[in-house]
Design a protein around this nucleic acid. Sequence first.
DNA 1: ATGAATATGTTATATCGTAACAAGTCAAGG
DNA 2: CCTTGACTTGTTACGATATAACATATTCAT
Lengths: 162, 162
Amino acid sequence: MEPDATLAFASHDHATCRETALAQAEAVARAQGLRLTPVRRRTLEILLEAHKALGAYDVLDRLAEEGFARQPPVAYRALDFLVEHGLAHRIRRLNAFAACLHPGEEHMPAFLICAECHALAEAPGVAVAEALQAAAASVGFDIERMNIEAVGLCPACRDSAA
Amino acid sequence: MEPDATLAFASHDHATCRETALAQAEAVARAQGLRLTPVRRRTLEILLEAHKALGAYDVLDRLAEEGFARQPPVAYRALDFLVEHGLAHRIRRLNAFAACLHPGEEHMPAFLICAECHALAEAPGVAVAEALQAAAASVGFDIERMNIEAVGLCPACRDSAA
DNA sequence: ATGAATATGTTATATCGTAACAAGTCAAGG
DNA sequence: CCTTGACTTGTTACGATATAACATATTCAT
Ligand SMILES: [Zn+2]
Ligand SMILES: [Zn+2]
Ligand SMILES: [Zn+2]
Ligand SMILES: [Zn+2]
């Protein structure tokens, strides 16, 4: 089942939402023999609690408040680890990172970024990815990784702009 | 007519290719009353001559060699202007900029970036963009701008890897 | 001519990201 | 046990990317 981005733009129970994602992430870690060490786990929790994209230095500040060293590699290592294993995503357009809300599920996220309120959603991107694969294949290009990001207005901000 | 990315990965006459793009860019500037000042024009030429994505500081170095001031805003302003008016594109994945090879033509480029030789192609992205529009619309999101980028192997590097 | 808008010059600084090496942890094989 | 090698973390230092802010100059329409 593909994730549904509607939730991200609607008011919902953040607590449940992040606990679910965290539990899924832990399941992934167990299944793949990953070491979800304290910094890594806390970094993921920070992203989940924020429930939006955070810059590496924002994460670093929060980590520092909890006793971890305030040095860039601390945050970048943890973030890179999470991204590497699909527990978080990197949003290039924002030079930022966001927890994956569907870790373990096969999904190609298309990110929708609200220019107004900065809400971020992972939209179902399978159709988009397939179209891109097809476009690439037609010129003999072999895709390894892709980034699909869009900036615009979320439902709430679009309505209030009218 | 949609641009064809095949050319970008094939050996071709760079001189013609860049003169065409430059001429198209000038036509766009005339048509839209844009001021293609010396720095801006030279910046576009630099991107076209390189025929690949260049970082802002690479562009700045080249501009400096030609008598322009070696200060970041010089390059960023020119690059931002070109991007703003569709004469160049920003490749977020590379923190870099590339001249648009189809200025004035309606197109939604999907960028294909070779991880091996760093070749860059603007693939026809209309189908991809439509799929993304549809995905966004299904959750009530209104897209203003989008970035579609893929990293992988170009035909030449894929073949030589085998 | 004159004012408003646009473009450029210039200084300084903010933000994002990585190289490199030392020190510590951990689990498997001897 | 205890070695050993892979992985993880601590730490310093730096590199790369991007923008703020303000002064000056140019352009363009009135
Ligand atoms: Zn995800
Ligand atoms: Zn919004
Ligand atoms: Zn283009
Ligand atoms: Zn290649």
